[in-house]
Design a binder for these strands. Sequence first.
DNA 1: AAGATGAAGTTTTACGTATAACGTCCGTGG
DNA 2: CCACGGACGTTATACGTAAAACTTCATCTT
Lengths: 333, 333
Amino acid sequence: MARPTSKDVAHAAGVSQAAVSLVLGDKWRGRVSEATAERVRAAARDLGYRPNLAARNLRLGSTRTVLLVVPALTNDFFARVYTGAARIAAAHDFGVVLYPSPDGIGPAKDPFASARSALDGVIASSMAAGALADIRGADLPLVMLDSDPADTTAAAHVNVDLADGMRQMTEHLLSLGHRRFLHLAADVDSWTFAVRADAIAHALRTAPDATLRTEHAPLTVHGARAAAERALTASGPRPTAVICDDDIIAAGACKAVRRLGLRIPEDISVTGFDDLALATAVDPELTTIRMPAELVGERGMGALLHVLDGKQPQSDALPVELVVRDSTAPPSA
Amino acid sequence: MARPTSKDVAHAAGVSQAAVSLVLGDKWRGRVSEATAERVRAAARDLGYRPNLAARNLRLGSTRTVLLVVPALTNDFFARVYTGAARIAAAHDFGVVLYPSPDGIGPAKDPFASARSALDGVIASSMAAGALADIRGADLPLVMLDSDPADTTAAAHVNVDLADGMRQMTEHLLSLGHRRFLHLAADVDSWTFAVRADAIAHALRTAPDATLRTEHAPLTVHGARAAAERALTASGPRPTAVICDDDIIAAGACKAVRRLGLRIPEDISVTGFDDLALATAVDPELTTIRMPAELVGERGMGALLHVLDGKQPQSDALPVELVVRDSTAPPSA
DNA sequence: AAGATGAAGTTTTACGTATAACGTCCGTGG
DNA sequence: CCACGGACGTTATACGTAAAACTTCATCTT
């Protein structure tokens, strides 16, 4: 038979459709007798009744569903953000639908085609400015994670203190004695990476004898390896420390260093960022900055729930943590 | 103002709601004049009209949305499956909603809470048998990827020739001269891994002098490292080749081998499976088996579309490819 | 001229649910 | 003995869309 509706359940239980809705919606105290309620529940169970979500959504005018837009799935940072967001959502009887932007950090092309149900709000993580044009156009409540706080189209922002992370990392290397730095920067025009570059430059002001070179690298291991090789074989004194914008680039940098016959960390120190699973999968394990990814997801979802409640969410920068592992050491020379 | 409805558009354009539906649904040839159609389109554009998906879904009784259930997001195999499935879906005006099972390959707990819209079908990838209880209960068309073909509750199966992959890998090692093998098997009770073990045992029958030991390892780099250390320091002659159930385990095995002061591949060969991004991120790059992940997603979505059309999909095992990199070599002794 | 055809719409209905508004029966206080 | 309010339901309606069925009017055919 076709899928049973609440009317079918009503008929089976010998009551009206309204009574079924009341009982199953848990709104029946004082309106329906316990005996009848139990009869309705039994009928629903027997028929295998599952409410039609489309009808419910139409009636209620809300879907209790939120879209989470992420640039990539291969990065476990976003997987952890999702986990956090989904946990908070579930606690409030919300669902989270994931939309991995096919273009990475670039424009998110019609995410609504993916989530075909109506949405109550959107959370976007680490997306480049201007990448969310049609999301803004839908005038849904939007919470941005790890994105430019100056973007006022978002109802709320949840950010991590990236600048402090890069400051800690740079000072860690400075205190080890490093003075010649190479910054392998992600070749993506996104706030999250711009902040890193600024923080490095800022931290190096305290060390007037330090030199900094910057090379741009794609966000893939192999692309980053090529970029690192290029930078490390360029003329001039070789850097003793390579600061990478994320762990993936760092993994590429490590490969490049070894290809040149150098050792990590004895000859060159390499640092990552994000503390992805990759950071401890490679050898040596990367000194990196741990992001509170699940917390970011939780806060993001929390902020969105606040907005949906008409309240004003407050934003604070979440703290990061320097994790020192085996890829950094004092320079040999 | 509240979100405009088709009725608002109709009023603005001076026509009936039905006319709006016809025009915007592209069903107006011979029913509405070009001039009126253009007026309707202009009104819709001006008001920023976006159809209410819940209402449309209710009316049509179908959501053109499919749920893809995967055990994990950190694994780029599943990201690629999603990419393939989403591509085919988009071409047929379907959407794909992703549900990452919070328990990994274990039971998928109420995936429908995540996708709160009604669904037309479900694709499940690499899930353990019995993990999809409530999905089966929803009696939606179900396509299983990389799962036990004997499971008849699925309307269709899409599988990769894993057995052939493990056969190729084992023969590759045999032809290099290896005879003492360690199999680092995933400690998960899932078809996809059971097949691998069988295939290794089968392939080794052609080499009567070969010995095989099996150790179970969790699907994490660190867990696998511990398991590998345990197995490699056990009494008896040390294996010369470590066959791992997937690349993550292989990464852990590599770490263990190096911890013991041994070199890869000179002292011990290590092989992976899946050809994840991780396989080329580690040093040395892993000899592994490449899975046609996107193709799996495409075929899965294609099969589901066939089922939804009432047609009978056919299943064939997709071919895999041995990728020889730097983690395998002839044994030294 | 009478009917047929077709274009260009409109009116109406159904999808399944949640809930406001409305009965009905019965025990009870005044 | 009558009004009254609770307990226990039912009836009716709205959500926004798609599409079947219907209307109107001008043109074409014979």
